[in-house]
Design a protein around this nucleic acid. Sequence first.
DNA 1: ATTCGCCATGTAAAGGTTTACACAAGTCTG
DNA 2: CAGACTTGTGTAAACCTTTACATGGCGAAT
Lengths: 341, 341
Amino acid sequence: MSAIKPATIEDVALIAGVSIATVSRALNEPGKVADSTRRKVIEAVAQTGYTTNAMARNLRMRKSNMILILAPDVGDPNFSNILIGLETEASKRGYGVLIGNTQNDPSRETDYLRFLSSNQADGIILLTGHLPFGLTQAGPDVRLPPMVAVNEPVPNAAVPFVGVDNIEGARTATDHLISQGHTRIAFIGQSTRSAVSSYREEGYRRAMTGAGLTIDPRFVLEADGTTESGRGAAERMFVRDQLPTAFFCVNDATALGVIIALTARGYALPQDFSVMGFDDISYASFVTPSLTTMKQPRLQIGEASMELLLAMLEGADVQKREILLRAELILRNSVALRRPG
Amino acid sequence: MSAIKPATIEDVALIAGVSIATVSRALNEPGKVADSTRRKVIEAVAQTGYTTNAMARNLRMRKSNMILILAPDVGDPNFSNILIGLETEASKRGYGVLIGNTQNDPSRETDYLRFLSSNQADGIILLTGHLPFGLTQAGPDVRLPPMVAVNEPVPNAAVPFVGVDNIEGARTATDHLISQGHTRIAFIGQSTRSAVSSYREEGYRRAMTGAGLTIDPRFVLEADGTTESGRGAAERMFVRDQLPTAFFCVNDATALGVIIALTARGYALPQDFSVMGFDDISYASFVTPSLTTMKQPRLQIGEASMELLLAMLEGADVQKREILLRAELILRNSVALRRPG
DNA sequence: ATTCGCCATGTAAAGGTTTACACAAGTCTG
DNA sequence: CAGACTTGTGTAAACCTTTACATGGCGAAT
């Protein structure tokens, strides 16, 4: 019974005894068709096992119902739940999700744009923090395809953004350290090159200032966000004569590096030092001591950004919109009351 | 200069002064066209910024150059590097990768099949360990779409499989414990329901038998592969009068549970007990003690499975092929020499 | 000089939809 | 009861390619 060729709309029309136009309408705009004929069509569809050929539909409608996700590293633990959120929301709305792992390689970024130019994707979710190379190349005045930046905003471009409120989150984190009695609090992170990092530093500064604390400039150290950089920064701290009692790190990976360095020096955590991260990556609860951190609402970030992009595709006129979600304080064991000493 | 409508092959033909057929040939089968006209076409393409409309091509060629990846949980840490491998290989060959997060929900599994039936995907990479619900529904004799099972083989179906050699890997792991002087080695895992687990148990048994060791049946405990189940299994062990000196766990999550249970009971690891995992998940090196385990070659698994699927699509007649890759022993700190006592 | 074959190109069909437009048959309205 | 409007359906164009087949020119072989 399984036909070697899949049934087309014509087969259905023939069986139902109507024209192909009516079949199309019966399926897509049921209201525009008489009840009796609609029933005949439905019956014929069931009989043939017809499914509409998406290629033909897409060609005709100039729309693929497909979204391209560009990420520098699909394996990033920060990425997975965002991806689930993106996919869930897209799927709910009948869209498919196409992934592009760019590794920050300009040629790959450009290559993936072919999905757009060849009409295989309707829009882009951008997790790279910059426009794909092929678009920046085209000059500043080129008309951008529908897209939404997630996690990392795109500098100098009117791209709607969805992400966590880094300033507010960093402030909450720092406030937590302050509430535990800490006053000499270091910030480990890189503010010069990464927008995310500079927002988190800003939150740290506001919390410190807000609490009437002064920031010792020697307590603000560069680290590029890797575990290794966190380790190195903590080491550099120990050439100072005065030490902080707490470290607020730009992200969990950095915090992990700091923990490794402090542990290696024989300190007991969190008794001797408190360490705070940001992100709540998947293994934050498994390190020793388990990491007190700010949890990014990744699922919601994914859902919200896809929702925004689909709204744009469906004509909603989103200009320079920005959606900031709150990070949540996760209390674990790497932060403790400052020792009375 | 940016046309409101993208250029079609007809525009190019007009400018180059040839027919659209020649343009198509110049681009797709350069050998079949005179050098001089090919140059004219290339020139015209550059001038118009033409890119071929993939929808039209796909419609005509009945091929989408798109692969659907079905996974129960895209966020699984085991999944990310496989995904990178899949994507890299696909991209290299000009294919796109579509993801479907099924959460083992039959309705979602069925839903994603629409990508196949509507010609939006040419084949499936299956990480779920079972046929998508919509296909099993269709009866056993239904012609399966091109697909490759990864990580978890599909029972009772002629689906080519790519994954790690679990028997050999588990044997290597157990041999390592034996080489450290252990003789009372427990196996924590679930063999009844999961094929992967039963292979790993088989490897464990072969290693034990091969070394002339007997397996105490009380040392083989059920655990469903979660951290919590590992913790529970370890707890149940302690109602016995005799204890093992080493635990080989079906995966790292389980091993982590065992470590947590042992640590909570006040034991020092690895001095008091050795614990071995399997998988080398991303945070295996961050737990305390860091986990000695078998590393799955995830990148290669991803690449090999995509390679196989694409070969099938391009006509290679792969019947019941199986590609098994070797797991690699990763030495860390959760395994030590058995204490002489 | 005829035939053959090859090469480069053009013509037109096919792929499967959606939808603007046309048309016929009712149903209202005045 | 004529005209206007509504409702349901059909016809055919459009979406943009690829490719089977036809054509014409040209060199080689007979």
